[in-house]
Computed example of a mutant assay.
Amino acid sequence: MALRDRRLLLVHAHPDDETIGTGATMARYASEGAGVTLVTCTRGEMGEVLVPELEHLAADRDDALGPHRVGELADAMRILGVTDHRFLGAEGRYRDSGMKWDDDGNATAADATGADAFWHADLTEAANDLVAVIREVRPQVLVTYDEFGGYGHPDHVQAHRVAHYAAALAPVRSYRRDLGEPWDVAKIYWGAMSAEAMRTGIREIRAAGDLTFMEGMDPDNLPRFAVEDDDLDAVIDGSRWVDAKLDAMRAHATQITVDGPFFALSNDVAQRAWGTEYYRLVKGTPAPPAGARFEDDLFAGLD
């Protein structure tokens, strides 16, 4: 398959999720001429504001964070070279649901969420919004979250549900003909983090003398979002695009502290931490290179 004919669709919950988890992958395929489409489900209205002079944008004050994050997302996509980015249904159709932390350290639904929260969206209606995109873009590959949304955030979980339901409906010839010609996505991946890589990184940095790095994180008892490598299927080397990814993360200034510990990593560790992205294949046939453990191309095996 010619690279220019390859089309990748990513479904993420809030602005910044796409860059943190899949930014190097997006930059790689965009730079190689593949079609890259990002669908963001909410504007991230309930996010915490990390810039003191912008704290007034928060939901409990001016409630103007959503439009600001739309601008941050546009800046990040420009840096990554992604020209097709859109919101599910329409900008602002689904509102960030917010979250709280449970006793196990995972995110979960907040005690109170508004009726317009994405968590409360009708699944069929939201899936139909994505069916229209799938049938328009006709991607061979779709990337979204696992059933736990990585760490439990209700909007990540809902994005997972919407993505999978839409992918199941899109190829049905008789379903909602008004949404376009049917299309079957050949491969679906869940983004992941490598448990092996996390253990190695934590131990290396602590051995170098930084005992505060990921303080409280036990390398032998990692959170649920860390996936054992036996369950990974694809590893994308985005080292050539790691600088673009970091710059795109900086564009999400209200959400990511650019002088935090991850930005202070040594070059070698940073290249591996931010330039390597991991995936689990949940639909399609794995096609790693001969003798290799993982796929190195999400389009591997497709004609």
Rank of each mutant, 00 (worst) to 15 (best):
I188G: 01
G209E: 07
V70T: 04
A90M: 07
F148Q: 11
D184Y: 09
V51I: 15
N106W: 09
G89N: 07
V82P: 03
G21N: 13
A248K: 06
T200D: 14
A287E: 11
L265R: 06
A126G: 05
A234Y: 00
D231H: 13
T113D: 05
S174L: 13
C41Y: 06
A112D: 10
D129I: 11
A59C: 09
R250K: 15
M193A: 10
N106K: 05
R28F: 11
E277Q: 13
D231C: 06
G33L: 06
H153T: 07
E204P: 00
S266R: 15
P261R: 07
G275H: 09
I188E: 05
R4T: 13
G152W: 06
H156S: 07
D231P: 00
A197T: 01
R177A: 15
R240A: 15
D233H: 15
F118T: 09
V133H: 02
H68I: 04
M214N: 07
T42I: 11
R280G: 02
V143A: 12
L54P: 00
D104G: 13
R86H: 01
G284R: 02
G150F: 11
L8K: 01
I236H: 00
P139T: 09
S239G: 02
G98N: 04
A74K: 04
A287D: 14
D247Q: 13
A34C: 11
E277V: 02
W119A: 06
H120T: 05
I202H: 05
E181R: 07
A90C: 03
T40M: 14
P223Y: 06
A290V: 15
H252F: 08
A115F: 08
T108K: 04
P219Y: 12
A90H: 07
H14R: 02
E196W: 09
E45T: 12
F299C: 15
T200E: 14
A115K: 12
T108R: 07
